[in-house]
Design a binder for these strands. Structure first.
Lengths: 144, 144
DNA sequence: TGATAATAGTTCTATTTAGTATTATACTAA
DNA sequence: TTAGTATAATACTAAATAGAACTATTATCA
């Protein structure tokens, strides 16, 4: 079947990204960007993770993360701690400073959600989320 | 309602982008990239468009398009033609060379669709597409 | 054990994306 | 008609993203 879903999702990504960055800045947050927020998102949840795990959870490539984490370390949002046992691994720890931004970020995420899914019923949102998860599984099994 | 749809869509974007680029390269196409393909997509349809219109159709910022079109012009995929009447406007024309890639691109798009939406019924795809369009309208009315 | 493979991260390079400021042109209204 | 505003595109800067090649470490197994 012919569909434009892929194209539509790109567009939502561009627009949504611009809007999110703007709301962040309008809220006076200059400590981190939207992209950095997506990495913090998994660290707010887990506190400390290896880079490989962050890659799995965010779906970002590892070379992307090296760069992002460099920046975030410079801004004291995260800390790299080598694993004493497996010396190949680096644990990325979230700092107290970054923990302090969680609430504000959640508020902005919620605003973004309200704005994006205006007019959606709960059932529709669940339906959408379910389908996105299925697509994710499809892509993951292809990439693997 | 709490949802992860935004986060999920970012992830699909990252994974899907990597996969698409890889399929492009594995298909022997090095004349353009996935991002450039999204711009060609609207030009294959319309032949010639002003930069502002390409921005509207792709949802890309105009400063993004200046750079992308520079590259695509260098690769002879498009041509910039000033409007003789309104001298502020530039018409971006697709070249014969770029037209020749349409079929291959469509084939790859179709493969990407099959892979992404494996297990989806036609009704589900239409449902998804409808919801994405609604989100797009919501974001557009916010950005305006 | 020692060779080889696998894993974890980084570096380097190139592309993509967008905000802000700027230039040039067109439109509008006093 | 000209002053002010809106529109169209570019220039400049900075960040985000990923592939390929690399280093270092750990695991495997003949």
């Amino acid at each position: 079947m012919k569909t434009d879903c892929g194209y539509l999702m790109s567009q939502l990504q561009y627009m949504g990204g611009r809007i999110f960055e703007k709301i962040l800045r309008d809220s006076g947050i200059d400590a981190f960007t939207g992209a950095q927020g997506r990495i913090l998102y998994v660290l707010w949840e887990h506190g400390s993770l290896t880079i490989t795990k962050i890659g799995k959870m965010t779906s970002l490539a590892k070379s992307t993360l090296t760069v992002m984490l460099d920046m975030m370390e410079k801004k004291k949002l995260v800390r790299r701690v080598p694993d004493p046992v497996n010396r190949r691994q680096i644990h990325v720890q979230i700092t107290e400073k970054a923990k302090g931004y969680k609430k504000e970020y959640d508020d902005i995420s919620n605003r973004m959600t309200e704005l994006s899914y205006a007019g959606f019923s709960d059932a529709e949102m669940e339906c959408l989320e379910g389908m996105l998860k299925r697509i994710k599984r499809n892509l993951e099994s292809y990439e693997a």
